[in-house]
Simulated assay, not measured.
Amino acid sequence: MRLHHVLLSTIAIASLTACNHADSDDDAPRAQALSLDSVSKNIPISVDTVHATAAEQYISLTGRVTYDEDLISRVVPFAGGIAVDVRADIGDQVRKGQSLAVVQSAEVMDVSSQAAAARSNVAVAEKSLHAAEILHKSGLMTDRDYEAAVREVERTRSELQRTQDVSGLLGSSSSSNYTVKSPRTGTIVQRAITQGSHFRADDDSPLFTVADLSRVWVLANVYESDINAVREGDSVAIQVIAYPDTTFHGIINRIYSVLDPGNRTMKIKIQVSNPRLLLKPEMFANVVIRRKEHRYLPSVKTTSLIFHNNSHWVLVVGANDKISPRKVHPYREVGDRTYIMDGLAEGEHVVASNQLLLFNAIVQ
């Protein structure tokens, strides 16, 4: 209250020494212009310089973090069996090739038996070929019989290679067990296997799901009114509740050109680098899209604006540091600044603190 009386006293003194009116509009507040120097002696005043920059569109969206489907692997069983040792759980960090589980399988035993038989067949075929070479060189074996011996060696070697490849895929270390290994470095995000569980080879359900979370997606919802402002390749800023002081940056790399009939929104996919693994799947995210327009407009701090009689005003510091109200027409608020369509020019100065108190004192 004391400050208000001081302002009124300042205005009264200024009215005796100044004769310039603030604005010629019919709805403009009528008051004598004040001196910045005289006012700042009584209350703290800060002044903001008007800058003209490319206008921005500012769109705020909601979304959620999910896996990058290009960096996810679903581990399915190569053969049916029983899990005898489960070595990884949800949330574990694993390396490519790391053992996730050991499975006991009759099918693996069959493969091991086939591999042993194939090795024996190769040994017999190679021994027969060695004898055939001696006989063929001596003229005691026809070319046809010799070629048959060569083909038999090739066939048995091919069968041995096949069984070895199957054994390699199964990762078998004994006659009846095989090892389930991680196909990539990442995080276990799903596990559908427990010790003692049974499963078949034709079961499509993954035993484990491994995701590389060093890059994730954010799926955000865009309302119909904002669809025309979204472009593939746009940069976005992302914040999550878990890290309120951290801003993540991503790129829109896909726009789904269909609307959800339930909430009338269109989804966009944002690719986000996540090297510290701070972003977790299913986190809620706030997404901000900023797009520069091809027009340059003056802007001021949003807090500098004063709403009076259904209009927006600012206190302009003019020649000789005189303060006077001026009507402006805001274009768009972006962050902590507002673009002005008309009423201000680049390089002008406006009061940026205690302006409402000063304005109210002026118009009374």
Rank of each mutant, 00 (worst) to 15 (best):
Asn20Pro: 01
Asn20Trp: 01
Ala22Pro: 13
Ala22Gly: 12
Ala22Ile: 06
Asp23Thr: 12
Asp23Met: 07
Asp23Glu: 12
Asp23Asn: 11
Ser24Gln: 09
Ser24Lys: 08
Asp25Val: 06
Asp25Ala: 14
Asp25Cys: 10
Asp26Asn: 07
Asp26Glu: 10
Asp27Phe: 02
Asp27Leu: 07
Ala28Ser: 14
Ala28His: 03
Pro29Ser: 02
Pro29Ile: 08
Ala31Thr: 14
Ala31Pro: 02
Ala31Leu: 01
Gln32Trp: 15
Leu34Ser: 09
Leu34Arg: 07
Ser35Val: 09
Leu36Arg: 02
Asp37Ala: 13
Asp37Trp: 08
Val39Glu: 04
Ser40Cys: 05
Lys41Val: 06
Lys41Asn: 10
Lys41Leu: 14
Asn42Leu: 10
Ile43Gly: 07
Pro44Arg: 07
Ser46Lys: 11
Ser46Ala: 08
Ser46Cys: 00
Val47Ala: 03
Thr49Val: 15
Thr49Ile: 13
Val50Tyr: 15
Val50Ile: 06
Val50Leu: 05
His51Glu: 14
His51Ser: 06
His51Tyr: 12
His51Val: 14
Ala52Lys: 15
Ala52Asp: 12
Ala52Leu: 08
Thr53Trp: 05
Thr53Ile: 00
Ala54Asp: 08
Ala54Pro: 02
Ala55Trp: 00
Glu56Gln: 11
Tyr58Ser: 10
Tyr58Pro: 01
Tyr58Arg: 03
Tyr58Met: 01
Ile59Arg: 04
Ser60Lys: 08
Ser60Tyr: 00
Ser60Gln: 09
Leu61Lys: 00
Leu61His: 01
Arg64Gln: 10
Arg64Gly: 10
Val65Met: 05
Val65Trp: 03
Val65Leu: 06
Thr66Ser: 14
Thr66Met: 13
Tyr67Gly: 07
Tyr67Cys: 12
Tyr67Asp: 14
